[in-house]
Design a binder for these strands. Sequence first.
DNA 1: TGGATCAACGGACAATTGTCCGCTTAGCAA
DNA 2: TTGCTAAGCGGACAATTGTCCGTTGATCCA
Lengths: 223, 223
Amino acid sequence: MKPIDPNPVSNTANPPGTTTVTEQGKAEKNTQDPYVRRILEAARELFIASGLEAVSMHAIAKRAGIGQGSLYRRFSDKGEICSMLLRDSTERFLTGLEHELVFPEAGSGALGHLRSSIGRIVDFIEQHAELLQLIKSEFTGKKQLTQFEHPFFRRLNEFLKELLVRAAASGEIPAIDPQFTATALIAVLSPDLYLFQQKQYGSTKEQITAGILALFVDGLQPL
Amino acid sequence: MKPIDPNPVSNTANPPGTTTVTEQGKAEKNTQDPYVRRILEAARELFIASGLEAVSMHAIAKRAGIGQGSLYRRFSDKGEICSMLLRDSTERFLTGLEHELVFPEAGSGALGHLRSSIGRIVDFIEQHAELLQLIKSEFTGKKQLTQFEHPFFRRLNEFLKELLVRAAASGEIPAIDPQFTATALIAVLSPDLYLFQQKQYGSTKEQITAGILALFVDGLQPL
DNA sequence: TGGATCAACGGACAATTGTCCGCTTAGCAA
DNA sequence: TTGCTAAGCGGACAATTGTCCGTTGATCCA
């Protein structure tokens, strides 16, 4: 597909032991690359000015003062640009959730933890529904992937699975398939469903949260 | 957007009382229109020959021996063509489900009915996952809609809601929000999740069905 | 300092989607 | 039959996406 994008910082050989650059590492690096900054800055300005849909890749390249090819070398579609623009938010959000996995609040158990996390996730989805939706549609369109394969949802999936495993281990819920249940939870937490319920039935955030909790927390408690 | 497509069968004034043509009616009519038949036939042939993705609207028009404009007048995108190609299957399937709503099997109650229906829906999704997926992505791309707004999922939603209402009325499950629960069920039954579980974890149809039942049938039973 | 090398730049280009509009032709009245 | 009207056909066109390749400029060595 696209040629491998080598580390643009320096042409000298990599110091031993650092040859493999993780996806994460690459993305972090990108954010500091002034070239990438220009692109992201241009995109943000245009998005704010005209809305997400109205902005073309060509327009972003032009605004950033670079060619089409150069833009596509960094970002293979608009969804990837959105991903990067959301990166700070998602990173902070996921890190926060994962941090609590290491130092859980005492007292409420894994199921209580799940309950409060779902609330926070719904908050986050609500805040970023539109961008997340665009990320998803670009992502699934080009690369034949489902939303579940997006890095953000992957990490969320792992997080939820861990909570479910803990709840099962401590006997708070019966032994269900934690992998499947976590994915199902992601499906229900997706911006898609949120936006639909809101638009179609005028559901509030509280109603949606309650519905999810009834299914995935209360519903799982031992009979 | 596109000019209203009047009933192509006759130019004479409509008989009184039949002026409003339902979406349903329009679609039924289309299927019989030889012009539309040609398009669907061409599309089917090309799809079989080259796969869904590889076929362009232009190619379909060319194969059908008509112009681009004429093609777009009938079908605003590839997803709509797929919808129509699947129409017979979905119609038969939904009619079957809805029929049982009127004449339910005695003995198992609404919850048992829900259980068996979910099994049948998963079967159907499995059979048509690829086409349904394409329908969804085209649909959501152009018209800013979520998968839940597609006629097929709408009807499925209504069906599931009715079963949930009955189960709640007969005391088999607690009084949950049937509308939300039905939509959540759709989200979990979507081809997206099915394909992901299958591809990523090699899940079988039985495992997926079991996971759904655990959440939406067993999980809802009174505590 | 000068030349060789090569990564990466960016614009031109092909492919696709969806719209628009001039022309054809079917249907009707005289 | 002839002329009128309008439905709708279909190709040309604009817009967008994503790729390819000729060119540029930085780095390194002599």
